[in-house]
Amino acid sequence: MSARDAILAGIRRGLRRGPLPPAEAAALDERLVAHRRNLVPARAAALDHAGRIGLFVAMAEEVQTTVARVASAADVPNEVARYLAAENLPADLAMAPDPALDALPWDARPLLQIRRGKAEAGDAASLTPCLAAIAETGTLILVSGTATPTTLNFLPDTHIVVVRADQVVASYEDGWDLVRQRGPMPRTVNFITGPSRTGDIEQRIELGAHGPRRLHVVLIDDGAPIA
């Protein structure tokens, strides 16, 4: 008997039944397809969109994410350059090869060195878009894909993420909906809540354990209507 069959037989022996009858299996398949929500906390769900943006920023800052609000997408290059200079970082960026980021007016900051692609060892800072931002805990959702390599989220010391106000949603469940709307599950979905940290030595929290030491959000709050 294969290991697979032995394990499944052992499970059924413990549950004192054979394989599920077709009707019961169909009901469970329906549960999978429906993927209904369980209890979703009111914390963010009860807020309007402005309230959710406020909660997202507050929760993100609580876990040492820094947030800069800009009034339009055209301001992103200036904010990125300002942030790197303020943190005393080189004006080098590994940028996600994402059309929306490409469309930003980078000419305005000719001194920024930008390389598009995945992250390489030694990259100091990365710039990526995100799929959504979760107000409930100040969490960013990033998905892998041709335009969004996952290494950009982990290898560089500094990770800068562009968030549009209309990407701020209440809950993880809202995030799953957006992931599903894109199509098949991407290879990687990252929920990121603050820069890397560890408490493994005397439970003292130290930032920058293995992933980014800094996580900076550029929030484009242009007052555009929410779809």
């Binding site: 992250a119 969490t139 390599p149 290879r187 990687t188 979905v189 929920f191 809540t193 603050g194 940290r197």
Partner: peptide, 24 residues
């Protein structure tokens, strides 16, 4: 576990890298 609101990284992995992916 740690009393955090949410851990820093929650990562969902599905299969190997997809056609067109640059890493993974």
């Amino acid at each position: 576990a740690t009393g955090q609101e949410f851990s820093t990284y929650t990562t969902v992995s599905t299969g190997p890298r997809r056609p067109g992916d640059r890493d993974g």
